[in-house]
């Protein structure tokens, strides 16, 4: 990695804005772009990237935003992380705002209505696919599958807020792990 302070905040912003503008499909699509842009400029070591990804994944929030915060901080501290995050978020903010402003006046256009009739079922299929691939990689035991199923039923059919479910699971898992650790001692 280069000496901290050598890279201007403006350059960090510009590089991340470019990454943000060319990412379609969310955080995982952004990973190869960030990785290649950072390595190409010698901003980051080869072995630093997996650590950044792992930590960004385990923190709350969006993967792409977390990676930008982390990488920006490694480059230029707090200012760097703000510049990187602004850069990563700004292109999508502007693009979606323009779409939102235009779409409200196009919403009742018959062509748009028909296109969206075709889009809606496909959007749902595109949510099912990442869910299944995530479950397949993280659910290694029967209780993990039971937990997935219970969370699905609680939200979809009982109307319980996901926030409460995450809190309950987090606190319970924390207590159980703590208990297990202390019994073993």
């Amino acid at each position: 990695m280069q000496e901290a302070g050598k890279i201007s905040l403006w350059r960090i912003f510009a590089v991340f804005a470019r990454i943000g503008a060319f990412t379609f499909g969310g955080g995982f699509a952004m990973l190869p772009l960030i990785s290649s842009e950072m390595k190409r400029r010698g901003w980051i070591d080869e072995d630093e990237m997996p650590d950044i990804i792992a930590l960004s994944q385990s923190a709350p929030g969006l993967l792409a935003v977390n990676i930008s915060i982390f990488a920006g901080y490694r480059l230029r501290g707090l200012g760097g992380s703000i510049a990187a995050t602004l850069g990563a978020v700004l292109p999508s903010f502007v693009a979606i705002l323009l779409v939102a402003m235009v779409f409200s006046s196009f919403k009742d256009n018959p062509w748009v209505l028909r296109a969206f009739q075709g889009l809606r079922p496909v959007v749902i299929a595109l949510i099912v696919v990442p869910m299944l691939s995530m479950a397949r990689s993280s659910n290694q035991s029967w209780w993990a599958w039971a937990l997935s199923a219970a969370a699905l039923v609680a939200v979809a059919f009982l109307g319980i807020s996901p926030v409460w479910i995450l809190l309950c699971v987090g606190v319970t898992a924390f207590a159980l792990t703590w208990f297990k650790e202390h019994r073993n001692k």
């Binding site: 949510i127 479950a135 997935s148 969370a151 039923v153 995450l166 898992a173």
Partner: peptide, 20 residues
């Protein structure tokens, strides 16, 4: 330990979004 339980829950939550 916490993450081991959170990950399967999250998969279920994503499934719920599709079901709803």
């Amino acid at each position: 330990g916490v993450m081991g339980a959170i990950r399967p829950t999250v998969a279920g939550l994503i499934g719920a979004a599709a079901v709803v």
